[in-house]
Simulated scan of single mutants.
Amino acid sequence: MTTVGSPGRRRIDEIGDESRRRILDAAEELFAERGFDRTSFIDISERSGISRGSIPWHFKNKDGLMVAVVERAMDRFRESVRFDDALPELAEVFQDYAKWVRGGQPTLLFMMLTEALGSAGGVRAQYQEFFARSRKGLELWLRVQRPEGVDPAFAAKQERDFASAVHGAILGIHLGALIDPDGVDLDGSLRAMACLLGRNVADVWREQPAPAKVRAGAANKRNGTGSRKRRS
């Protein structure tokens, strides 16, 4: 009998991990090439060299496999974009994103988006988490540069809006580079966006609304309802 700590058990685990990796590699490639609906377990089996029956054993069903593909893509993204001791320049953050894109299947992100739009289950939830994590990194980048004296509630909303706008712009550049690679340079466009944002980042907090008491006083003054005495 083989025990949990024996070499035989470890070899079985290694075989299982290798099979799982090969299935995920094949599924990621095929999902990016053909889309989720047009990829079957038979296709994945042929591409991976793993028997068809092993796929549901590892991932239960096709949705489970898709979620695993998304999770692995998210893990790669988290590993590629990191905040170390020093705050990185936006150009460095965007460069990390470009490296992540090239490190996997460039079209996978938008295949995942298509599936998430038509699903209310695990795939959409995973994709929402992926987007949320991406935006949080941008919010953090902006937050550490927030000037003193800015209302926290106002600042939090501005940071969320900034992150959403930048995240959307990055996705747009990515999509443009996929559709028209001769017309859209991924690296060059990301550098240009980083340059524009870096020059104008202080404007994010300049539209801070006045405190409630100040606004009320200004309104009263305009309406002639202040505390000044009336003439007799």
Rank of each mutant, 00 (worst) to 15 (best):
A219C: 07
V204Q: 03
R78M: 07
W205A: 09
G137N: 08
W141S: 03
D203V: 04
F36I: 14
R20C: 08
R10L: 00
V204M: 09
A73P: 00
G118E: 15
E115K: 14
S40L: 03
Q128W: 13
R222M: 07
F41C: 09
Q105D: 14
A27I: 04
G121S: 06
Q158R: 13
G226E: 10
A177I: 01
R228K: 12
A125I: 03
L142P: 01
R191A: 11
L175C: 06
R135N: 08
R199N: 01
I23W: 03
A165P: 13
A27T: 01
P56K: 09
L190F: 02
K99T: 00
S54Y: 05
R124I: 13
T225M: 06
V201P: 02
E139V: 11
R76Q: 11
D63N: 05
D161N: 04
A120M: 13
P106F: 03
V67L: 05
L108V: 13
S232D: 03
A177F: 00
K62I: 10
W141P: 02
R22H: 06
V214N: 03
R82H: 08
R72T: 04
F83W: 08
V4H: 08
K60V: 06
M66E: 01
G149N: 12
I12A: 15
N223G: 11
W141V: 02
R9H: 14
R146C: 06
R102V: 14
Y127P: 02
E207S: 10
G149L: 07
H167M: 07
L24I: 06
K157L: 15
M74W: 05
M74P: 00
I12S: 10
Q145E: 07
A218Q: 01
Q128D: 10
G176D: 04
R215T: 13
V67H: 03
D96C: 09
R228D: 07
R199L: 03
R102Y: 00
V81K: 10
A192W: 07
T114N: 04
L117N: 02
I170K: 02
G64N: 09
G198I: 01
D43Y: 09
G49M: 05
N61K: 05
F41M: 12
T2Q: 15
E129L: 14
P211G: 00
P7Y: 11
G172K: 06
L30P: 02
Q126A: 10
V70H: 00
S51T: 11
A73H: 13
G64M: 04
K62T: 01
A26T: 08
D13Y: 15
V81E: 01
T114H: 12
W205E: 04
A219R: 06
A156K: 15
D180V: 06
L87V: 08
A120F: 14
A120V: 03
R82D: 15
L175T: 04
L90I: 13
R47L: 06
V101G: 03
